[in-house]
């Protein structure tokens, strides 16, 4: 009988992602409840110094694959090393955060292991008989379901950023460090990352942001998003956009919230000049608080907003930015 909960730790710009800390926070609690070992798995190069931060979260074991061939993500290298590890150690459960890397990796590994993976989960609970039950959004949040893996092991799931939440570290336990010897034939790696364009050091990804300031058709022009950038900066948040704004060419698609963009669950979603089309609401419906600013009192967005201001956003946003600045001063 396989045992143990693994969480796959992800690095971005050589730092542990916030979503990985969510996995560490939740994983420890599940391991306690199921009375299983809790293991963090870390891939990369020159990464040993990061294990201290991981250990703070009460892991029983850290599996470290520290190798130049794992410095940059490639499907073949990561999938091979991870699949071999899982086959050798037979964890019962492997959790990931739902990132670009994991979207590429997890289905590969799952198919190789002939198991399922519940992707982009927004919730999880343990049933009385010790099975993980995962909540997933369908139609970008217009519908939900709960799924589980009755027999196939390991149970695998990827979690949407902010779905689990980060908690304070539970403290260092007796940590066993296991360094993996990476055996990879470079000729077997079928994809080659030639370069990374437009590399940003500190840009927050929309799905991970706790606060999103989002603009729609009412923003009228690309340059007006500067107002939202300023507000987002004061709040430490990220800027999103509706499909109308993206299709008008005002923002990049990576900013789009909705059914053909990202589904987000921030603590606060400030919708500016967004009417609230069904496909947009689906993508932000699970935000904890929604603020709508729109001059049209009939706009759909007001039907789901916790707080609304019916007014010209070009006047409201700068005042709001000033007010938050004052508050922080």
């Amino acid at each position: 009988m396989s045992k143990g909960i693994w969480v796959f730790i992800e690095l971005r710009n050589a730092k542990i992602t916030n979503s990985s800390y969510e996995l560490l926070s939740a994983g420890r609690k599940f391991a306690d409840k199921l009375e299983q070992d809790f293991t963090a798995v870390l891939f990369g190069y020159n990464i040993e110094s990061l294990t201290d931060a991981i250990a703070q979260y009460g892991v029983d074991k850290i599996i470290l694959a520290d190798d130049p061939k794992l410095e940059k993500y490639t499907t073949d290298a990561y999938a091979t090393v991870l699949t071999d590890l899982i086959k050798a150690k037979q964890p019962e459960t492997v959790f990931y955060s739902h990132s670009a890397l994991v979207k590429d990796l997890a289905p590969r590994v799952a198919e190789r292991l002939k198991t399922g993976v519940a992707t982009d989960c927004i919730g999880v609970e343990i049933s009385d008989d010790g099975q993980f039950k995962f909540t997933r959004a369908l139609y970008a949040g217009k519908l939900f379901n709960q799924v589980y893996s009755p027999h196939a092991r390991p149970v695998m799931a990827t979690f949407r950023p902010n779905a689990l939440g980060v908690e304070d570290p539970s403290g260092v336990r007796n940590v066993q460090m296991e360094k993996v010897k990476v055996q990879l034939n470079l000729e077997n790696l079928r994809t080659l990352v030639k370069e990374i364009l437009g590399k940003v050091q500190n840009k927050m990804d929309l799905t991970e942001a706790e606060i999103i300031v989002s603009g729609g058709r009412g923003m009228k022009a690309s340059e007006n998003f500067k107002l939202l950038e300023e507000l987002a900066e004061v709040l430490g948040g990220a800027v999103g956009a509706s499909r109308a704004a993206v299709d008008s060419g005002w923002r990049d698609h990576s900013n789009q919230v909705g059914q053909t963009g990202k589904t987000v669950s921030p603590k606060l979603y400030i919708a500016c000049g967004i009417s609230g089309a069904i496909q947009h609401l689906a993508g932000m419906n699970s935000s904890r608080f929604v603020v709508a600013i729109n001059k049209d009192p009939e706009a759909n967005i007001f039907k789901i907003a916790d707080y609304g201001i019916v007014d010209d956003l070009f006047k409201v946003i700068p005042l709001l930015t000033e007010e938050f600045k004052k508050m922080q001063a």
Binding site: F144, Y148, N285
Partner: peptide, 11 residues
């Protein structure tokens, strides 16, 4: 199938 649906519900 390895994954089974337990329930479906509206938000």
């Amino acid at each position: 199938a390895n994954l089974k649906v337990i329930s479906t519900f509206l938000p």
